[in-house]
Each structure stands twice: as structure tokens, then as C-alpha cells.
């Protein structure tokens, strides 16, 4: 890649990304308001008693008494100044709520992502190198099993096994509450809590990467340049690493780019089963409570991330495969 072309590329992609995000925000806004019910009626429904004045007060406070286009305009102005608004339901700014929950989700999805990519690519490579052997069969069967099993079931089984029978790992939460832990002990505590949800979330993708890596490596291994490398006496390890794996990685990177974006929003199920205090849960609760500002805020954050990851994927292509050029 020519470095001189990078700033122009980033600028063009940045403008495009901003437009895409703006369109997403507007679409989300109308989609959310199209759902029946509003936050005031939800609160009235949960309060056990209500009257007209109560509803009117809430709607006025939430700004729901304004016409929809005015509400959209106010929201857009806010987003342009990076103000995601205020959750009247929780009486806190949306940024505060998201900032409280985002680290937990990034930790969980980050761990699951690293686990899935490293273990998946390693297993796929192993399987491809020993095609037809018992190791290949075992890996293929395992990958297929994880690929086909629903997430929540895997989660529940892991909990049954590790928390209930073996009593090794806690079944829910992100940390031990009510005990004072500092430094290494606190990190180990979080790691213990992280293991099961990260496994649950990562296993499916691990399977996908393993299968993808195995398939593309087998495809690449038959190509002429690999034969040439072998013919000129390049050691087998180097052939696999530099010639086969590197070329086989492109589809894996494509998929990882998509996955990285999905992970943030896609962890709702795992966050629910493991009571992980992340952003997926925040979005889900906000949806049920019709907490529009929070929901839009989470959508905004995730769409920014998806766009960001796409950009990073494109740059990574160029790094892995010099033939690929960055283009606006």
C-alpha cells in the first residue's frame, strides 16, 4: 500500500461513514417510534396505579408531547454535538449509562473474539495440514457441533457443568460483589466470571473460523505458487505460514470484520443468561421500556463501531495482501 494515498482514503471513507451513520440514526428514530406504546404508558403499566395527569406529566417531561419531526430535529442536533440525550426513565444522561456498560461488553466480546480467532485459525490450520487424519476428523466434528448448537443451550450446559456440578466457576455476574478485592485478585475474579460467557459467545465463531480456515487452506495448498515454493525447497513450516495461511486468511479477515461489528450487538443472549452487565442488556431493557433515548444511543454506538470495523478490515486487507489497494 502506498502510504501517501492513505489520508485521502481515510477522508473519503470518513465522509461516507458519517452519512451512513446519519441515515442509520434517522431510520432508527422512526423505527423506534413506530413500535406501539411509549415510555409513559410502560411506566403507568408498571406502577400499579395511574391517572391522566400522571401520563401527561410523564409525556411532557419526556418531550413526547412535541410533534415527531421536532423530536427528531432535537435529537439530531444532539447527536451532531455528540450529546445522546437524557434517559428520563432512569434520570441519567445516555452517555453515562452507555459508558457504565460499554467496558463490560467490550471485555466480553473482545475476549470471545480473540478466543474465536486464535483458537479457530489454529484448529483450522491443524486440520488442514492433516487432512483425513483422526485429528482432522475430531476437529471437524467439534467445529460442526459448536456450529450447530444454539448459544443459550451451550451457555446453560457450561453453567450446569462448571458451576453446578464442579463448582469451579460462578454462574453469573461480572465480579464478586460484597468482597473487597484489589489488583491481581480483582482481575482474577473478573477472569473467572468471564470464562463461561466468553466461551459461550466465542464457540460458534470459533467453529466458523476453524471450518473457514481449513477450507481455504486446502484450496490454496493446491495452487501452483505453493507447489513452486515446495519445489524450490522452502521448509514445510514456512510454506504453511507464509504461503498458504497468509493467503487463506483473507476470507477469515472478511468474516472477522463482520463478526467484530456483530459481536457488540449480538451478545444480548449471553449477557442475559450470565447476567453480564453489558450494553446488549441495556438495549434490550430499553426496548422493553420504550426508553427511546437509550435505545437510539446504543444503536448509534454500535453503528459507529460497525462502520469503524469495516474500515479497519479494509486497511487490514492491504496489510495482509499487498496486491490489494485501498480505494475510496
Amino acid at each position: 500500500m502506498e502510504l501517501s494515498r492513505l489520508p485521502g482514503f481515510l477522508l473519503r471513507r470518513g465522509v461516507k461513514a458519517a452519512l451512513v451513520i446519519l441515515a442509520i440514526v434517522v431510520c432508527n428514530f422512526f423505527l423506534i417510534h413506530a413500535a406501539p406504546g411509549d415510555p409513559a404508558s410502560v411506566i403507568a403499566g408498571q406502577s400499579g396505579a395511574a391517572d391522566e395527569r400522571f401520563l401527561a406529566q410523564l409525556r411532557q417531561q419526556f418531550g413526547l408531547d412535541q410533534p415527531l419531526y421536532v423530536q427528531l430535529w432535537i435529537y439530531l442536533k444532539g447527536v451532531l454535538t455528540l450529546d445522546l440525550g437524557f434517559s428520563h426513565r432512569q434520570q441519567l444522561p445516555v452517555w453515562t449509562l452507555i459508558a457504565q456498560r460499554l467496558p463490560a461488553t467490550l471485555l466480553l466480546t473482545g475476549a470471545a473474539f480473540v478466543l474465536a480467532v486464535t483458537a479457530g485459525v489454529t484448529l483450522g490450520t491443524l486440520a488442514a495440514r492433516r487432512v483425513g487424519s483422526w485429528a482432522d476428523s475430531i476437529i471437524t466434528v467439534i467445529a460442526l457441533t459448536f456450529y450447530a448448537t444454539p448459544l443459550f443451550w451451550v451457555g446453560l450446559m457450561l453453567v450446569l457443568f462448571f458451576s453446578v456440578w464442579l463448582e469451579w466457576l460462578p454462574s453469573f455476574g461480572m465480579n464478586s460483589v460484597g468482597v473487597e478485592l484489589y489488583g491481581i485478585a480483582a482481575m482474577l475474579d473478573v477472569a473467572q466470571h468471564l470464562l463461561l460467557p466468553a466461551l459461550t459467545l466465542g464457540l460458534f465463531y470459533l467453529a466458523v473460523y476453524a471450518r473457514l480456515t481449513r477450507a481455504t487452506m486446502l484450496e490454496v495448498a493446491d495452487q501452483d505458487f505453493v507447489k513452486t515454493a515446495r519445489a524450490k525447497g522452502v521448509p514445510e513450516g514456512q510454506v504453511v505460514r507464509r504461503h498458504v495461511l497468509r493467503n487463506a486468511l483473507l476470507p477469515v479477515i472478511t468474516f472477522a470484520g463482520i463478526q467484530a461489528g456483530q459481536l457488540v450487538g449480538g451478545s444480548i443472549l449471553v449477557e442475559t443468561v450470565f447476567a453480564w452487565p453489558g450494553i446488549g442488556r441495556l438495549a434490550f431493557d430499553a426496548l422493553l421500556a420504550r426508553d427511546y433515548a437509550v435505545l437510539l444511543g446504543v444503536f448509534f454506538c454500535t453503528s459507529v463501531m460497525v462502520v469503524g470495523f469495516n474500515l479497519m478490515t479494509d486497511l487490514l486487507y492491504a496489510v495482509v495482501d499487498p496486491r490489494v489497494e485501498v480505494e475510496g
Binding site: 413500535a35 406501539p36 406504546g37 411509549d38 404508558s41 410502560v42 403499566g45 408498571q46 422493553l288 421500556a289
Partner: peptide
């Protein structure tokens, strides 16, 4: 339905 729609429709 979900809780939000339920409350709205009953209300």
C-alpha cells in the same frame, strides 16, 4: 405482545 404494547393497548 410485549409489556410496552400491552400497557398501551389496555390503556
Amino acid at each position: 405482545t410485549d409489556a410496552g404494547s400491552w400497557a398501551r393497548r389496555v390503556g
